[in-house]
Amino acid sequence: MTGPAGATSGTDDAPDADSSADTADTMRERAGENRVKLWLLLRANRLVVAAVLTFAVFVAFVAVAVALSPSLATKVGASDPIETLFASMITAIVTGATLVVTIGQLVLTQENGPLGDQRERMDDTLAVRDDIADLTDGPTPTDPAAFLDAILGAAAGHAQDLRDSVDDEGDDADGSGRDALRAEVDDLVTGLTENADAVRGQLDGAEFGSFDVVFAALNFDYGPKIGQIERIAADHDEALTDDERGRLGELKATVSLFGPAREHVKTLYFQWALIDLSRLILYAAVPALVVAGLMLTAVDAGTFPGRTLGVDHVTLAVGGAFAVALLPFSLFVSYLLRVLTLAKRTLAIGPLVLRDSE
């Protein structure tokens, strides 16, 4: 199954049943996008991104104002564009901040509910943790990074057990069926263990609340590995022993658990980020309103006389105030860029291809 040309997928991708499962493991390689662009969308600190956007607005405002004829200072002397501009900004700030906080509250209402619903959520969570404990042969960690690490460690261990079992089993009469099986199992196990070890290294020391845990989880491309396990089971059914079929099923179950585990951690991060965004927008809205109010009531053509490097001081003042008034919107854009990019990369929870694949 091949996605449309140029399509972008989540990390849950698998190749066609008749293809080689030769896909990149890391999310950046699968995305096929510029490293700087991907860093800006996902890895960069959101406050830094918001600050860069705010500065870009200031520079663009001043550049356009200087290029216009007559100059902004002349226009301010002839009419009152400052009052018109910042009166509109005050309305936008209040409306935007209220809307964002309201949306945040609506999303978080799913955490509220009667006692019976909360008990059912707890029972479902504990049931999944018990399943993970059975497959990992140990207690399920409570830390999100350690939680994902335990699943990856169990998957790597089960993969190695499968390879050892296939290597220890005797050959067929002609040996061809077992040789092909060993080659495919070795390819699966090598790719899975290398990918799992790399991601476990990224999870080591990662703290939830930052983007590190979620970003590391994106780099384990479990979908193709599930597809490869299924193909080995289907293509080599006659060559597999009952023990090997059991180990394949156990490996598939462990790798498959990573999907919902990652989605759970991603959902918690979305809620965490939304709370942070709502709080930051409220913080930024206060100085933005103060600056907009001062510009509306205290600034006129004579407030900032003079020029520097050919630029009217009033132009710099209005541009700076306009950029500060847009700070809540810059914060909203910076967080939304990450959330939407992350959601697009993880649309499919199963082994589906939403992009081009080899």
Results as ranks from 00 to 15, higher is better:
Leu347Lys: 13
Leu327Asp: 03
Val324Gly: 09
Gly319Met: 10
Asp300Lys: 13
Leu336Pro: 07
Arg345Ser: 13
Thr308Trp: 02
Thr303Cys: 02
Pro328Asn: 01
Thr308Cys: 00
Tyr335Gln: 10
Leu326Gly: 06
Ala298Thr: 14
Phe332Ile: 11
Phe304Val: 03
Pro305Phe: 00
His313Trp: 14
Val318Met: 04
Asp300Gln: 11
Val314Pro: 02
Val314Trp: 07
Gly319Asp: 09
Arg338Pro: 08
Ser330Thr: 15
Val314Asp: 14
Gly310Trp: 03
Gly306Pro: 01
Ala323Met: 13
Thr341Pro: 07
Gly306Leu: 03
Gly302Asn: 15
Leu342Gly: 09
Phe329Ala: 14
Leu331Arg: 08
Pro328Asp: 00
Gly310Met: 02
Tyr335Asp: 07
Gly320Lys: 11
Leu336Ala: 15
Leu316Gly: 02
Val311Asp: 00
Leu326Tyr: 06
Val314Met: 03
Leu347Glu: 14
Thr303Leu: 04
Leu326Thr: 12
Arg338Gln: 14
Phe329Pro: 07
Ala348Phe: 12
Thr346Gln: 12
Ala301Gly: 11
Arg338Ile: 06
Leu316Lys: 05
Ala298Trp: 04
Ala298Ile: 07
Ala348Gly: 06
Ala298Asp: 10
Gly310Gln: 00
Phe329Arg: 09
Thr315Leu: 08
Thr303Ala: 05
Gly310Val: 00
Arg345Val: 08
Arg307Ile: 04
Thr303Gln: 05
Ala325Trp: 03
Tyr335Glu: 08
Gly310Pro: 02
Phe332Met: 08
Phe304Cys: 03
Ser334Ile: 10
Ala325His: 06
Gly306His: 03
Leu347Trp: 08
Thr315Gly: 03
Val299Ala: 01
Ser330Ala: 15
Asp300Pro: 10
Thr346Glu: 04
Val314Gly: 06
Lys344Pro: 05
Ala298Phe: 11
Asp300Tyr: 08
Thr315Phe: 12
Gly310Cys: 01
Arg338Ala: 14
Leu309Asn: 06
Leu326Ala: 15
